[in-house]
Amino acid sequence: MHVSDEHFVDALAGEVTHVEDLGTYKILTLNLDGQRLKARLQEDETVPRGTAWIGFPSQWLMLYADDLLVEVAP
């Protein structure tokens, strides 16, 4: 998941509900349409306040059906 404090193409708006600073990284808790998501941010990344823009890069997405990875033709 890609998280930013600025809008980008195909981004979804999520509400930042909690930030946990663990030293070398931070755990960001977000509310996206009633679903709770957590994202890990590196210590030098900007932490969004209020609204965070979230994206799911296609190279990292996988679709499963009945516990089997479904391969989609390019």
Score class of each variant (00 low, 15 high):
residue 50 G to C: 06
residue 42 Q to H: 06
residue 4 S to V: 04
residue 61 L to R: 08
residue 11 A to R: 00
residue 51 T to M: 10
residue 61 L to P: 03
residue 54 I to K: 00
residue 13 A to F: 05
residue 55 G to K: 00
residue 13 A to W: 04
residue 58 S to D: 12
residue 31 N to W: 05
residue 72 V to K: 08
residue 4 S to I: 00
residue 22 L to F: 13
residue 20 E to D: 07
residue 57 P to Y: 05
residue 61 L to T: 07
residue 66 D to I: 02
residue 56 F to T: 00
residue 51 T to C: 03
residue 39 A to G: 09
residue 3 V to G: 00
residue 2 H to L: 15
residue 42 Q to P: 10
residue 61 L to M: 12
residue 58 S to P: 07
residue 36 R to M: 11
residue 22 L to R: 14
residue 14 G to K: 04
residue 40 R to K: 14
residue 2 H to F: 12
residue 68 L to T: 14
residue 9 V to Q: 13
residue 1 M to E: 08
residue 71 E to R: 14
residue 42 Q to D: 12
residue 56 F to S: 01
residue 21 D to P: 10
residue 38 K to G: 04
residue 15 E to F: 12
residue 27 I to F: 10
residue 55 G to Y: 00
residue 70 V to R: 07
residue 34 G to E: 08
residue 16 V to Y: 08
residue 36 R to E: 04
residue 12 L to C: 04
residue 41 L to S: 03
residue 58 S to E: 08
residue 3 V to Q: 01
residue 25 Y to L: 10
residue 55 G to T: 01
residue 3 V to I: 15
residue 70 V to W: 01
residue 35 Q to G: 01
residue 67 D to P: 09
residue 33 D to M: 13
residue 17 T to V: 08
residue 39 A to I: 06
residue 18 H to S: 13
residue 15 E to K: 09
residue 45 E to C: 07
residue 70 V to F: 07
residue 12 L to Y: 11
residue 30 L to S: 07
residue 58 S to Y: 09
residue 74 P to E: 15
residue 64 Y to A: 06
residue 7 H to T: 14
residue 24 T to W: 14
residue 59 Q to W: 13
residue 71 E to K: 09
residue 65 A to N: 14
residue 2 H to S: 12
residue 17 T to I: 14
residue 18 H to P: 01
residue 59 Q to L: 12
residue 5 D to P: 15
residue 42 Q to V: 02
residue 50 G to D: 07
residue 2 H to R: 15
residue 28 L to D: 13
residue 50 G to E: 01
residue 20 E to N: 14
residue 70 V to N: 04
residue 31 N to S: 08
residue 10 D to F: 01
residue 54 I to T: 02
residue 51 T to R: 07
residue 69 L to S: 06
residue 47 V to W: 04
residue 27 I to E: 11
residue 73 A to R: 15
residue 28 L to N: 05
residue 19 V to Q: 03
residue 53 W to Y: 15
residue 66 D to E: 11
residue 14 G to W: 11
residue 1 M to G: 13
residue 65 A to Y: 15
residue 57 P to I: 06
residue 40 R to S: 13
residue 60 W to R: 14
residue 30 L to W: 02
residue 10 D to Y: 14
residue 32 L to E: 00
residue 69 L to E: 11
residue 67 D to N: 12
residue 32 L to C: 03
residue 27 I to A: 03
residue 20 E to Y: 13
residue 51 T to V: 12
residue 31 N to V: 06
residue 22 L to P: 02
residue 13 A to C: 11
residue 71 E to Y: 09
residue 2 H to C: 09
residue 19 V to I: 15
residue 44 D to I: 07
residue 72 V to I: 14
residue 62 M to N: 11
residue 67 D to C: 08
residue 19 V to S: 08
residue 32 L to T: 04
residue 27 I to K: 07
